[in-house]
Computed example of a mutant assay.
Amino acid sequence: MSDYCDLAPGHPFHGPYHDHEYGFPVADDDILFERLALEINQAGLSWLTVLKKREAFQRAFDGFSIERVAAYGEAERRRLLDDAGIIRNRLKVEAVIHNAGVIQALQESHGSFRAWLDHQHPLSHGDWVKCFKRTFKFTGPEITGEFLMSTGYLPGAHRDGCPVQARILAAAPPWTRSRE
C-alpha cells in the first residue's frame, strides 16, 4: 500500500495507526476482534471515518471484549443502533456481535482466535476469503484482506521502502514464516 505509506506519516489519525499497528503481528484476541470489527465497519466508507470513530467504537463495544460482545442481547443491539458515535448499520452491528460468538467457539476449539488464524496460515488471499466466508459474517475479499494485512497474516501493508516495514519484518509477522 505505497499510497498509505505516503499519506499516513504525520496525519493525526492515519499516522499512529500506520506507524504502530498496521501490519504488525497481534497476539491479543480482543485486539484481533477489534481489528475485524473495524474492518467490517469500514465497508463502503473511508478508513479515516473509522479511525475517527475508533474511541467511540471501543466504548460502545465494551473495549471489544469478545466475552461481553458475544453476550449482547436486544437491549445492547438497540443501544448500538442509537449510538451516534459509531456507524449505525444494523447488518454491521449484527455481524460484529455474531462474530464475537464465532470467535468464542474458535477459542474453545483452538485455544485462541490467534491460534485458529495460525492453524489456517499460510493461505492465499483467495483461500483466506473462502475460509472467512465459511466462518464469519460480513467478510468479503476486501474486509478479509485488510484484516489479514493489518494483523500480519498477509503481506502488503507497507511498501519495502517504508521505514515501518523494517520494524514489521523484525517483528516476524506470520506472512514472513512458512508453516513448519
Rank of each mutant, 00 (worst) to 15 (best):
S150C: 15
Q58H: 10
P173F: 02
D62T: 07
S109Q: 07
H98Y: 14
Q107N: 09
R90L: 12
G85E: 11
I97R: 08
A157K: 03
H121I: 12
K130F: 12
C131G: 10
E146F: 13
D28E: 15
T135H: 11
A171I: 04
H20T: 15
L91Q: 04
D127I: 01
W116L: 09
Q58L: 06
A170C: 02
A70D: 15
L38N: 08
G63A: 11
R35A: 14
E74D: 13
L48K: 00
A105M: 05
E146L: 14
H158Q: 06
L45S: 05
T151W: 07
D127C: 03
P16D: 15
A71W: 01
D82F: 03
A157C: 06
E146R: 08
R114W: 11
A166D: 01
S150Q: 14
A56E: 13
D19Y: 10
A95M: 12
D118S: 06
I66E: 13
F13G: 05
L48G: 02
E74V: 07
E108D: 10
E67M: 10
R88A: 02
G44Y: 10
H125M: 13
A8E: 05
I168T: 01
Q107E: 15
L123S: 06
P155D: 15
F136C: 08
R134Q: 15
F24P: 01
E55N: 03
G101S: 11
R35H: 14
T135G: 04
R77S: 13
L7P: 04
H20S: 14
A60I: 10
G73F: 04
V69R: 05
L81W: 12
H119P: 00
A157F: 04
V96H: 08
F57E: 10
H18G: 07
I86G: 01
P173E: 09
G140D: 09
Q120S: 11
A27I: 06
Y72S: 07
H158D: 03
I143Y: 04
E39P: 00
E76W: 03
F64R: 02
V129F: 07
Y72I: 08
L38Q: 13
S2T: 05
A166C: 02
M149C: 11
H14M: 15
E94P: 01
D3C: 02
D19I: 04
G15P: 02
E39W: 02
Q104L: 13
R78I: 15
A56H: 09
A56S: 07
G140C: 04
A8F: 05
Q58I: 07
G156N: 07
I40V: 14
I143D: 06
E146N: 13
F24E: 03
H158N: 04
G111C: 09
C5W: 00
G23A: 04
G44F: 08
G63F: 12
Y153V: 12
D83E: 14
Q42G: 03
I40S: 05
Q104Y: 07
F147H: 14
R134C: 09
I86D: 03
A115H: 07
Y72W: 07
V96K: 04
E39Y: 08
D3S: 08
G140P: 02
G101Q: 13
G85H: 01
G126W: 06
L32P: 15
R79N: 14
V50T: 10
P16S: 15
L91D: 07
Y22K: 06
Y72M: 12
E142R: 00
V93T: 08
G161T: 05
L123R: 11
L38M: 14
P141Y: 02
F147W: 14
